[in-house]
Nucleic acid binder design. Structure first.
Length: 271
DNA sequence: AGAGGTACCTGGCAGC
DNA sequence: TGCTGCCAGGTACCTC
């Protein structure tokens, strides 16, 4: 579920609630996430105080003096802060219990998420080291994007979903950004002109900013830290809208198979 | 180096 | 109603 805007929405929701909280204990009801939940985390996090909550790509970074919790929501994860004695529902796998009696609760039905622990600078962690620039940061610009696309044959949609190129863009926003840029998701990036690359960069930033402002996209079950859905699905131009009229021109939106995942575009607005 | 496929897992839905 | 097959927001890892 969560792409960058949903993770950012979650980060905003939990940052104030977490910062300054001392951890009393960690309750693990299910160890088997994407990777086994870090035993070192369960051992070393109690007694620590959360100093800040940052984000890199789709990873949440919960920093303490002893180390950093690296948390990924996978496809179906969500976080809430609730009283620690609240009965856990199905798929509520982890509680990080605070000294004040509340806890940060991770729910993740598909268990594609991750809960890891690093004692060093999190950016050096294997999972974060090779990530491309943040799409909303200054490193992601037309020069960079144009240079990286040269001699590449992959479809624009897949290129945007490549975390080594740009971090945090998933299928929804890759398709939406392609629409805003006026380019079909199946376009081979190596043939994009410099001007088209500039449009893509602008479109990616625009799409993500709008989505963050709307609290993310809730297709099925995404909820923010307060248990509320996002609203960006109401503004989607193409994603999941096959055969529905384009919001710009009324032409039916088309779905294409790109690799293993669906792509969506307006045959009139995108070339 | 790059492209493409596979694997991990559960739940919802369409179709029969 | 109940079964089956397909699809899903991610991404590391494998092979070619």
């Amino acid at each position: 579920m969560p792409e960058l805007p949903e993770v950012e929405t979650t980060r905003c929701g939990i940052a104030a609630l977490l910062t300054g909280q001392k951890v009393a204990r960690v309750v693990v009801r299910e160890w088997r996430l994407r990777w086994r939940v870090s035993r070192a985390l369960v051992r070393e996090l109690p007694g620590q105080t959360f100093r800040r909550v940052a984000r890199r790509a789709k990873y949440l970074l919960l920093a303490t003096d002893a180390g950093t919790v690296i948390l990924h929501l996978g496809m179906s994860g969500s976080l809430r802060v609730v009283p620690a004695d609240t009965a856990p529902a199905a798929h509520d796998h982890i509680d990080i219990v605070f000294a004040d009696g509340r806890c940060l609760r991770l729910r993740d039905p598909r268990r594609f998420g991750a809960l890891l622990w690093t004692r060093t600078e999190p950016q050096l962690h294997k999972l974060l080291r090779a990530l491309g620039p943040e799409p909303l940061g200054t490193d992601f610009d037309a020069d960079y994007f144009y240079a990286r696309t040269r001699r590449r044959k992959v479809a624009l949609r897949d290129f945007l979903m490549n975390a080594r190129i740009v971090a945090g863009v998933g299928n929804i926003y890759a398709n939406e950004a392609a629409f805003l840029a006026g380019l079909r998701p199946q376009r081979r990036v190596g043939r994009l002109t410099r001007a088209e690359c500039e449009r893509v960069v602008t479109a990616v930033r625009e799409t993500l900013q709008q989505a963050i402002a709307a609290g993310g996209t809730t297709l099925r079950d995404f909820q923010n830290a307060n248990g509320l859905p996002g609203y960006f699905q109401l503004q989607l131009y193409v994603y999941g809208r096959a055969r529905e009229p384009c919001r710009r021109c009324g032409t039916p939106i088309k779905a294409v198979r790109l690799g293993q995942r669906a792509g969506f575009f307006c045959p009139r607005c995108q070339s």
